Computed example of a mutant assay.
Amino acid sequence: MKVRVLGTAAGGGLPQWNCACATCAAARRAGVGRDQDCLAVSGDGRSWYLLNASPDLRGQLAAVPELAPGPGRRETPLRGVLLCTAELDHTIGLLSLREATSLAVYATEPVLAALSTGFPVRQILAPYTDVTWHEVVPGEPVTLQGGLAAEAFVVGAKPPRYAAAGGTGWVVAYRIRDRAGGTLVYAPCLPDVDDAFAAAVEGAGLVLLDGTFLHDDEMTRAAGGGRTATAMGHVPVEKSLSLLPRESGTRYVYTHLNNTNPLAIDADGLDVAEDGQAFEL
């Protein structure tokens, strides 16, 4: 399995356009930054799937040679998108794919419903391209082109602010496996490291997980107020570090870093994903 990290930041990216926190200021001085969360995976190097569709998607696709169009004039290796949530920073990029010849989008029932109501991207895309919308049922594997199988598992129940509450499956992670047994777990939005998560990562070669906040009270430290990481549905790194199962052969890499997170500038010895990073399982 080939894995390409397209973006590693939480909503707003780094530096965030309207933020003068210490981390954003340091990023501006250094001329560095992070695009918003997005991942690309392939089982054969020819058929690729996105996990989430970030607002930065056009530039992310253009930066990766494996995702370049061709040989046909409108032919691309992109086959579809698997959504972890209905959050805007995970779905706005779908609009950038409106010129695709065809596209498959996979998401849970409440996410699909939100994309028909509060953020009606399904109706917006319909006049532009042929999109097949697939309902993902947690626990039931989905067969993808190129020899991949993806299985969603529920990790959270927090809907985006624009959506009506209710339903389950608002926040999922994916366990993706190839024919040779290579296994990836992608959990950019993770409220806690519990027994269910430990079971889901068992045997995985690579786990890309929630690194949104380093500290639970990070917003207070950075901005003088605001909700805790836990209240926003993100387990802080300082907590997850001590709870992750340390199975031999499993690599844990943090992604989805908020602009306030000091790890976005200095990883401080932790395994933190970088934009453009490639893995092979």
Rank of each mutant, 00 (worst) to 15 (best):
232 M>S: 10
4 R>L: 12
9 A>K: 11
9 A>P: 08
61 L>P: 00
203 G>D: 10
187 A>S: 12
178 D>Y: 02
191 P>F: 08
225 G>H: 03
219 M>A: 09
6 L>Y: 14
129 T>D: 02
154 V>C: 06
190 L>G: 08
83 L>W: 07
60 Q>V: 13
193 V>R: 10
92 I>G: 00
248 S>I: 04
273 A>C: 14
183 T>R: 13
150 A>P: 07
243 L>M: 12
2 K>I: 11
183 T>N: 08
146 G>D: 13
235 V>T: 08
21 C>T: 06
98 R>D: 01
137 V>E: 13
48 W>D: 03
99 E>T: 05
192 D>N: 12
196 A>Y: 01
109 E>H: 10
228 T>M: 04
186 Y>F: 15
276 G>K: 13
232 M>C: 05
158 K>V: 07
24 C>P: 06
118 G>F: 02
278 A>H: 12
152 A>C: 12
206 L>C: 06
241 L>I: 11
279 F>Q: 08
145 Q>C: 05
180 A>R: 14
166 G>K: 14
182 G>P: 01
127 P>H: 09
222 A>Q: 07
81 V>A: 04
172 V>F: 04
130 D>C: 10
47 S>V: 00
208 L>T: 06
143 T>G: 02
208 L>Q: 04
47 S>W: 00
101 T>E: 13
237 V>M: 09
201 V>P: 08
98 R>Q: 11
11 G>A: 15
116 S>P: 05
20 A>M: 10
231 A>W: 03
263 L>A: 12
192 D>V: 10
279 F>L: 14
228 T>W: 08
90 H>I: 02
262 P>L: 07
249 G>W: 07
61 L>N: 03
224 G>Q: 09
247 E>P: 03
216 D>I: 09
194 D>C: 08
105 V>L: 05
82 L>H: 02
6 L>D: 11
58 R>A: 11
87 E>A: 14
225 G>N: 10
209 L>M: 10
61 L>M: 09
140 E>I: 10
255 T>V: 10
256 H>P: 00
139 G>K: 14
230 T>A: 12
279 F>R: 11
5 V>N: 10
139 G>D: 14
103 L>A: 06
77 P>A: 01
200 A>C: 10
48 W>F: 12
128 Y>N: 06
18 N>I: 11
220 T>V: 14
134 H>W: 12
14 L>P: 05
100 A>H: 05
128 Y>C: 04
137 V>R: 15
109 E>M: 04
243 L>V: 00
261 N>A: 02
155 V>L: 15
128 Y>R: 05
208 L>E: 09
1 M>H: 14
56 D>K: 11
225 G>R: 09
171 V>T: 12
63 A>R: 11
82 L>Y: 00
231 A>K: 07
175 R>Q: 06
67 L>I: 13
118 G>I: 02
11 G>M: 08
27 A>R: 04
58 R>G: 00
237 V>I: 15
246 R>F: 06
193 V>L: 14
206 L>Q: 01
12 G>E: 13
224 G>Y: 09
96 S>N: 03
260 T>I: 03
103 L>S: 07
3 V>N: 02
187 A>P: 03
84 C>W: 00
212 T>A: 15
68 A>F: 01
271 D>C: 10
108 T>R: 01
55 P>R: 09
212 T>P: 00
97 L>I: 02
223 A>L: 15
281 L>H: 02
207 V>W: 03
90 H>Y: 02
191 P>A: 06
68 A>H: 12
60 Q>L: 11
266 D>A: 15
